[in-house]
């Protein structure tokens, strides 16, 4: 099994403002991550103690490593703040198991805020 996976992340609807005003990001994530979504770079996952990197891990990772300001506008209680839509390869994440969706190499994850003015 590969030790890292590459994914593409996109922010829109105003969320990009929290991420250095950059809409598109390419990331390399560890293929296997701790069960508690600890995103520290040097964390060691013991044999049989991890899980495949999933969207819940990605949210924690984005909060810990890419977010520039006001974390509470993005993450809340281990998931995205209500009012943020998530798409996994252009499909509503509610159809893909939400945070439990296991990421695959080449996946594209989009986060859209609906909270900005109409």
């Amino acid at each position: 099994m590969e030790s890292t996976i590459s994914i593409k992340v996109e922010f829109s609807g105003g969320l990009e403002l929290l991420f250095d005003n950059k809409r598109s990001h390419e990331l390399a994530l560890p293929a296997v991550v701790p069960l508690n979504n600890d995103t520290k770079k040097d964390v060691v996952v013991a044999e049989g103690q991890g899980k495949p990197a999933d969207v819940a891990y990605l949210i924690a990772y984005l909060r810990d490593h890419l977010l520039q300001e006001r974390a509470e506008l993005f993450e809340e209680g281990g998931t995205v703040r209500p009012g943020i839509l998530v798409l996994v390869n252009d499909t509503d994440w509610e159809l893909e198991g939400e945070g439990e969706y296991a990421l695959r190499d080449g996946d594209e994850i989009v986060f859209i805020s609906t909270l900005h003015g109409g």
Partner: peptide
């Protein structure tokens, strides 16, 4: 949610800054 998904799927050009 549906309005935002509609705009996303149709790739409509909109502005979103507070």
């Amino acid at each position: 949610k549906e309005i935002v998904m509609y705009a996303y799927f149709k790739k409509l050009d909109y502005f979103s800054t507070e």
